[in-house]
Design a protein around this nucleic acid. Structure first.
Length: 591
RNA sequence: CGGAAUGUUGCCUAGUGGCUAAGGCGCCUGCUUUGGGAGCAGGAAAUCGGAGGUUCGAGUCCUCUCAUUCCGACCA
């Protein structure tokens, strides 16, 4: 490819909207163009990178027995109604009508489409197990796209779906993906961590997320250095401190003016926050069996020094949605914001964190402006509807496994794997006949990787102050020839052009900067675009005996005689490819 | 959906209510130059996001609206 002919061009300055490094470099390098919030066009350079990534995805999927299919982006609504997600998912899913006034949806993911396919083609246990996948466009009308390609509305996803007759079979395919995903990310040069995660809108039982650690990430992971425990904060467990158990004392109302927060209250009464009870008012939307929805007022109680984990609470009460309660809703159950507790409250579903339930003589709200109650005891002074773990893990808490101090880190989710089980197959009647002729639901798994997000995370991990440094495995080109025109002769140009043909003939992907630009412009663009090897051909290099050979990201360069360039390049590219290959390791599966 | 910020040419920015909206980068033409974002000369490119309003006069003030970004809610 000739630089002079590439569709798109580099920019000296990034648009002021671009904040994330990957966003800036991808725009400045002429890789992507933003069309609207969360919508991007991919220009030829980016397309080449995507092709490389997709190539790796195809190879790794083939390795675990995946068969490629393609399912539509626009899907009839009825299959989403069958699975129930038509009703569960809100405005994130775009619904439309076709010319015949049929409800249609833009696919956010393809469980339903796959189930519909499977129930028409899978008949017998002899046809299982199966693994199918595609790399297909998803549309999710995300309320908050951000950071370039990190969080977008339209994106390509590699999604695979496993179909099995047994849970053991599912486990096998799940573990195969677990390893395969590490291989994929490693081959792309991205360091990831697999963490346990919530199953979210996918439903199902077990899930892992593959996380790239970066401060620009939106997820928080909690991990333990000493035993290796790690988890998305949404589901992270931790060892709770021993509850303080005293003889329950008489309940007593005390005046506590202007103590609307736990912090103020603890200060005012000169007690530790752990001696208080925190009340959090939420409203859960709960779907009943007959597809009707009800709103349930939830009163969550935690020990004062802990925070509520909304995902845990949401799962505990099986909520479809969970939101903070409005002030009038709080008052309607007889509680007072800032001075709330379950004591004397009616028509609230009280969920108490284990630790708060075990603790004695806590200070809780009196449900009266300016008053709290001393010596509140769960069970005696109020009856919990549910006692479970609803506390959010924090760095500094103790590891559930080994008791060491937990740490936390921000991360971007680049992939996920779900054990769906029969969540969809039962709803959509995806069955097979077993050896006895009995109809049984297929046991499913689903596995996703966001391709563009992966690309941008690689840029986040591999760049310097001048631009991108592509891992050779996904670089748009292997070699970038920088031709420096020489007024006094044509040798540089002839040499560069000859190299360009020779390298192409040798099967090396080469970009030649044949533009009539000054050396500075070309060097800066080469750094920005980030191709692994740069060959500079100019008067000076020729006088020194050849062409300048430089690996992107390394300081030093060397002069290589022209007739040795192809050999040298092949050696270096092999070396770079081996570095990538060396990253691939068998990982230990962690449940 | 809440909070905040910003919209001036392809990109970055300047622009006290007052003359024909200014500069840099980039782009086009010509000359010159070629090892780290060169120089000279000429040129094209803006209905100042949009709609109303205040005013003798609005890029500038007011109202509404749209868009984008950031923080939250949300999110596989």
């Amino acid at each position: 490819m000739r630089f002079s002919q590439i569709f798109g061009h580099t920019l000296k300055e990034a648009p002021s909207d671009a904040q994330a490094v990957s966003h800036q470099y991808l725009i400045r390098g002429g890789y992507i163009h933003q069309v609207a919030a969360g919508l991007f066009s991919y220009l030829p350079l980016a397309r080449r990178v995507l092709n490389k990534i997709e190539g790796i995805l195809h190879e790794e999927m083939a390795m675990i027995g995946g068969q490629e299919v393609t399912m539509p982006v626009v899907l009839p609504a009825d299959m989403w109604q069958e699975s129930g997600r038509w009703y569960q998912i809100g405005s994130e899913m775009t619904r439309l009508k076709d010319r015949k006034d049929h409800d249609m949806v833009l696919a956010m993911t393809h469980e339903e489409a796959l189930c519909d396919l499977a129930r028409k083609y899978i008949r017998s246990h002899k046809e299982l197990p199966q693994l199918v996948y595609h790399i297909q466009t998803k549309w999710r009308d995300d309320p908050r796209p951000r950071a370039g390609l990190i969080r977008v509305r339209e994106f390509k996803m590699k999604d695979s779906y496993s179909l099995d007759t047994s849970w053991e079979g599912l486990d096998k395919q799940y573990r195969a993906h677990y390893q395969s995903y590490f291989n994929i990310f490693n081959r792309c040069g991205l360091d990831v961590l697999a963490v346990k995660s919530d199953t979210g809108m996918m439903g199902g039982k077990v899930a892992h997320e593959f996380m790239y650690l970066t401060p620009i990430g939106e997820d928080t992971i909690i991990y333990c250095d000493s035993c290796g425990y790690n988890s998305n904060r949404q589901v992270a467990e931790f060892m709770k401190p021993e509850a303080v158990k005293e003889e329950p004392a008489e309940i007593e109302k005390v005046k506590t003016p202007d103590c609307k927060t736990i912090e103020d209250l603890a200060k005012f009464l000169s007690i530790p926050e752990s001696k208080t009870a925190k009340a959090v008012f939420m409203v859960a939307t709960i779907q009943e069996d007959n597809n009707t929805e009800i709103e349930k007022f939830i009163l969550a109680i935690l020990r004062g020094d802990m925070d509520l984990n909304e995902t845990k609470l949401s799962n505990a009460v099986k909520a479809k949605e969970l939101r903070p309660a409005h002030e009038d809703e709080i008052k309607a159950v007889g509680a007072v914001p800032g001075y709330g507790s379950p004591v004397g409250v009616k028509n609230a579903f009280v969920v108490v964190d284990e630790l708060a339930a075990e603790s004695t003589n806590l200070v809780g709200g009196a449900n009266e402006e300016g008053y709290h109650l001393l010596n509140v005891n769960c069970g005696r002074d109020f009856k919990p509807n549910l006692v479970t773990d609803i506390a959010a893990a924090e760095a500094g808490y103790k590891c559930i496994n080994c008791g060491s101090e937990l740490k936390s880190e921000k991360a971007v989710e680049v992939g996920n794997i779900f054990k769906l089980g029969t969540r969809y197959s039962e709803a959509m009647n995806v069955t097979y006949q077993d050896e006895n002729g009995k109809l049984l639901p297929v046991i499913m798994g689903s596995y996703g990787i966001g391709v563009g997000r992966l690309l941008s995370c690689v840029v986040e991990q591999h760049h310097d102050d001048y631009g991108i440094i592509w891992p050779v495995s996904i670089a748009p080109f292997h070699v970038h020839i920088v031709l420096l025109h020489d007024k006094k002769g044509t040798e540089a140009q002839e040499t560069a052009e000859a190299l360009y043909s020779d390298l192409q003939a040798a099967g090396i992907e080469v970009l030649i900067d044949d533009r009539k630009e000054s050396p500075g412009v070309k060097f800066n663009d080469a750094d920005l675009v980030g191709i692994p090897v740069r060959l500079t051909v100019g008067r000076r290099s020729l006088d020194n005996g050849g062409v300048e050979f430089k690996i992107r990201g390394e300081k030093d360069s060397e002069i290589i005689p022209v007739d040795q360039v192809v050999d040298k390049l092949q050696g270096v590219l092999d070396m770079l490819k081996n570095d990538i290959r060396d990253r691939i390791k068998t990982v230990e599966y962690k449940d």
